[in-house]
């Protein structure tokens, strides 16, 4: 579906929990009467969970191994004092 620019910003603010309670209630009333809009919200929520589920490989253990050189470097830091 194609949303007007204002509607799209409203839609996104709703998705992000950025509307005040009154605005959110009024947007929910629209969702109840516009199934296409409700379907769109669902699509974006799925997209969000797909994005978040792609995080498994950022396992902290693997990450700390990758960053060992940094940690060692900081531990033995010899940076000039007052450097930017």
């Amino acid at each position: 579906m194609t949303l007007s620019q204002d509607d799209e910003l409203l839609f996104n603010a709703y998705l992000d929990g950025e509307l005040d309670p009154l605005e959110a209630r009024s947007f929910e009333a629209r969702l109840a009467s516009e199934p296409a809009l409700a379907g769109e919200i669902e699509a974006y929520r799925l997209l969000r969970s797909a994005l978040r589920s792609d995080l498994d490989e950022d396992h902290p253990l693997a990450l700390s191994a990758a960053l060992c050189p940094v940690l060692l470097c900081v531990r033995h830091a010899t940076f000039p004092r007052g450097a930017p």
């Binding site: 579906m1 379907g39 997209l47 792609d54």
Partner: peptide, 22 residues
């Protein structure tokens, strides 16, 4: 977006894999 109107987006996204998202 014209194509999307004919396509159930939610059903498509449910099948999307991590690699596609990346």
């Amino acid at each position: 977006s014209e194509a999307l109107e004919r396509t159930p987006e939610a059903a498509l996204i449910a099948k999307v894999e991590a690699e596609q998202i990346r």
